[in-house]
């Protein structure tokens, strides 16, 4: 599984939707469970899975799936 798929799977699991519903432009608030708690769960899960740490300034810019894929890719490459 590549990074993009891994990120999408993590997000789907955190907000309890099928991964097929997760597009690059799916954003905070698009699903009922992608609320503030959902966002915290996603970010913690990404940090754990890829063994990385996001700074608050970066976290604020993580508004959709594409932002998250990009931020993870930048840190693991």
């Amino acid at each position: 599984m590549n990074t993009e798929e891994k990120v999408k799977n993590i997000i789907a699991e955190a907000i309890e939707v099928e991964v097929s519903k997760i597009e690059e432009d799916t954003a905070i608030g698009d699903f009922p469970k992608w609320d503030s708690m959902g966002q915290v769960i996603i970010i913690s899960a990404l940090e754990k899975e890829f063994d990385i740490k996001f700074d608050p300034e970066v976290i604020m810019d993580l508004e959709d799936v594409g932002d998250m894929i990009e931020a993870v890719e930048e840190r693991i490459s």
Binding site: S36, Q39, V40, I43, P56, I59, M60
Partner: peptide, 14 residues
Amino acid sequence: PASWEYIQKMSGNR
């Protein structure tokens, strides 16, 4: 208080 935790985690002291 949970919102404050969230705001801090997401944006520091902004």
